[in-house]
Simulated scan of single mutants.
Amino acid sequence: YASHGGFIVSSWEIVPYLFLGLVAGASAPLFLRLLRASETIFARLPLPFALRLALGGLVVGAISVALPEVWGNGSSVISDMLHNNWDAHTVALLLVAKLLATAATVGSGAVGGVFTPTLFVGAAMGLLFEQGYHTLWPQMVFDARPYALVGMGSFLAATTHAPLMAIIMLFEMTLDYDIVLPLMLACVTAYYTATSLDTTSVYSEALKQRLGRTPPQSPALRGCIADVLKPHPQTIARAAPLVDIARAFARSQNLHLYVTDADDRFEGTISLMDIKDFFEEPYPSTLVTAFDLMHGELPLLTPQMSLNAAAMSFLSVLTMLSWHCPC
């Protein structure tokens, strides 16, 4: 979005940007409650999911017949707001319509998202705030478009609880250094105001709902390890040299080899990636053995263990490996 400057006409204009942050921060929890209320209303309807989607589309379609600007994510309308003069009545009408359309979309479960509608609401809020402030003190404000941009950033910071992201994103949109000071002030004010009223953000609420649902058990995870256990895995002696390990990988075409002792008892595993670095050298070492390369700290699984328990054991190993990964 192109910026036309004029963010700070006088030092006193810091004050309205501060109040804009307060308004955005107080409005964000109401916006999130509207979305949650819409989800609750649609969930209580005795309709299958497909019909709930159709009902949400019907509501959005009925609104867009009278106000086609609410259709889509609203980016084109935001751009028009920033390049043309809009009267307060039209902006307020579009704001209410966009809120209803977004609530119907999110509540019905349709794919749409709330990121760009959040920018739309913030831009409209900034324009309305500027026009109201201009009515009270006409000598303090000269251009409404800076307030639309700062309104976008502050409302985004308030709904996502990510003020730094909002500041960087709006700066990248405008590439105007003049926006940084009022944007930082409004975004930080909006963030602290919103978090003091409601600790949930637009994404944390959705994540909480997903984690709160107990997913049905996958058919692939039903049963025990004995049902999927493959007999006679590819093994290699602990004293086997590097060349024998490479030949075993080439012969078996597996990604892992199982290291055993003289009594054929399991001691650890070797991954194909463990030997890759050795063969990048011009003269691979002849002193390295399977015992030097194997990984012995692995979860102990039994044939009677359920597949779900085994999956959780592997998940703990992946977590441990990622924690110790030097990259």
Rank of each mutant, 00 (worst) to 15 (best):
H4L: 08
G6T: 09
S11P: 03
L18V: 13
V23W: 02
G25D: 05
A28Q: 00
L30M: 11
L32M: 10
L32W: 02
L35H: 01
R36P: 00
I41K: 03
A43F: 03
R44L: 10
L45F: 06
P46S: 08
F49E: 11
G57P: 02
V59W: 04
V65E: 04
E69A: 14
W71N: 08
W71Y: 13
N73L: 15
V77A: 14
L82Y: 06
N85C: 01
W86D: 03
W86T: 03
D87W: 03
H89R: 13
T90V: 07
V91T: 15
A101K: 03
A103N: 04
A104W: 04
T105D: 04
T105Q: 06
T105I: 03
P117M: 09
T118S: 15
A123L: 06
M125S: 13
L128R: 08
Q131P: 05
P138R: 12
F142K: 15
A144C: 04
G151Q: 04
M152Q: 09
M152T: 09
M152I: 10
S154Y: 02
A158H: 00
T159H: 01
P163Q: 05
M169Y: 12
M169P: 01
L170R: 01
I179A: 08
P182A: 14
M184Y: 01
T193W: 01
T193H: 05
A194M: 01
L197I: 14
D198V: 00
S201K: 00
V202R: 00
Y203S: 00
S204L: 00
L207F: 08
K208S: 10
Q209A: 11
G212R: 07
R213K: 11
R213M: 09
T214V: 12
P215G: 01
L221G: 02
I225S: 02
L229N: 02
K230C: 05
I236E: 05
A237M: 07
A239C: 08
I245D: 00
A250P: 02
S252Q: 09
L255S: 15
Y258R: 06
Y258V: 13
D263W: 07
G268F: 06
T269H: 00
S271G: 15
D274R: 09
K276I: 08
D277I: 09
D277T: 13
F279A: 05
Y283N: 12
G296W: 02
L300R: 14
L301H: 03
M305T: 07
S306L: 05
S306R: 12
M312Q: 15
S316Q: 15
S316Y: 04
S316E: 14
L318H: 07
S322N: 12
S322H: 10
P326Y: 06
